[in-house]
Design a protein around this nucleic acid. Structure first.
Lengths: 245, 245
DNA sequence: TGAAACTTAATCAAAGTCGAGCACAACTGA
DNA sequence: TCAGTTGTGCTCGACTTTGATTAAGTTTCA
């Protein structure tokens, strides 16, 4: 006998190969009827984990649902730590800082000085939690919370950012193409970042080297518009020249 | 004969393998009836250690155990759980719910149905985190975060509430005097609650019995203006009469 | 286009599981 | 001793899950 959630996990594993899997195949491999597989898929679709297609299903790999944030937190932690440390060095007393909801930016927090009268504005729930633990004055945008990513988006979030005059902004995105375009899978989050750009004097892209060369559907700007690009390694030669200006 | 605690530990050990275990199997290995196992599981679920599934149970992964930690510090968890369960019973499909940042209201969340299209609006960061874990659609007020309490206050928070039409609101406060005045130590939070009152059709005070008779400096209203007052015990006679109306 | 092949949702019955309530025994404290 | 309490098992009606069946819908391909 197998429990429902075990089937869920197996189905997810089967779909992990990025290819659609047929109801028939799942039914065969799980030793349950197709009706049961369909009911499972229906439940999983409701939770936004899979998308059903005629005859089968595929994994939802779009916006933020693909890899939960807490998973990403563990990737490249070393790189992000190095970047976080560099970033924190740019912060001065009494600064007002914007930090987005990315996991890279999250790693800046532990390096922030604790008693220097900072104010941090963020749209990330876990970022806010970490700031609270360090007793740093925090403003949170609020808004609609994205499932699995614990970040806030939407008009309400923007309306707070629009009132802010920040000294410095730390953010990240999913990918940065070779030619310097910053891209992401979430349009809503990207739009919010663009609003943040307009309200921060100094914009700092935190770019773990693993992101270089990757490209996603939404472009939120180019590195030319940034004031700094921090990476745990040397940046590509061509970027360095561009950033000189 | 075996003590309850011993069974709890054995059950936890069985669940440690990361796989669900059936009630039948536990019953067999512990030499007790399935009814007893179910009662044990019920108790353990209340404490948030295991999650029951149809036919068995799984261990609750402790990834975000930091959340309930501060909640657990203060006693009365059991009382709050009872109240939380009662509260969740008032919720219908598709409801829009306001939940404040209090720890009592926090305990409502685990009792909320998971797939019923709810929308929850809250000013509590940890409340939002718990909602996210349950994949419930969540709006967060944002605003200025109060140190050590992880709740949001201020004009920005109010501005979101003002746009909401909620079916029901769950909240709590520090103390409720014998004569039915709800009081708290935080004026800012109390003001936000008053705004919430104006935007919820049904206002439900979650009042653990330990709060009755206590009084703090700021009064945010009286129980007469509430639609329900939930307590883990019987309410005082005089209150019951007042609430009849 | 239209028919064949296939997939799906709805419905039903059977098996399994659950919660509430009762009975009983062991224990507690007067 | 006795009434009250607690923990356990049992029973039974209610609920859930599952696979089979069937009608309706979708795709394919000539």
């Amino acid at each position: 006998m197998m429990f429902e959630i075990e089937r869920f996990e197996q189905i997810l594993a089967m779909l992990g190969g990025d290819r659609p899997v047929s109801v028939r195949e799942m039914s065969g491999r799980l030793f349950v009827s197709e009706a049961t597989v369909r009911r499972d898929l229906e439940a999983m679709e409701k939770r936004g984990v899979v998308r059903r297609i005629y005859g089968g299903a595929v994994l939802v790999r779009q916006t933020n649902r693909d890899v939960p944030l807490y998973m990403r937190e563990n990737e490249m932690t070393e790189a992000k730590n190095i970047i976080g440390k560099k970033a924190a060095e740019l912060v001065a007393e009494n600064n007002v800082i914007i930090i987005d909801a990315s996991s890279t930016a999250y790693h800046v927090i532990r390096h922030l000085p604790e008693n220097s009268n900072l104010v941090v504005v963020t749209n990330g729930l876990k970022v806010a939690l970490a700031l609270g633990e360090r007793h740093i004055k925090t403003l949170v945008t609020g808004g609609s919370m994205i499932d699995n990513s614990y970040s806030f988006i939407g008009r309400h979030a923007e309306s707070l950012i629009e009132k802010i005059n920040a000294d410095i902004m730390f953010f990240s995105c999913r990918g940065v193409s070779q030619d310097g375009r910053m891209t992401d899978t979430s349009m809503e989050e990207s739009l919010l970042r663009q609003t943040m750009f307009a309200h921060a004097k100094r914009k700092v892209l935190l770019c773990a080297s693993s992101k270089i060369g990757k490209e996603y559907f939404f472009t939120l700007g180019t590195i030319d518009d940034m004031d700094d690009v921090l990476c745990e390694k040397e940046l590509p030669e061509s970027w360095q020249r561009r950033l000189q200006k």
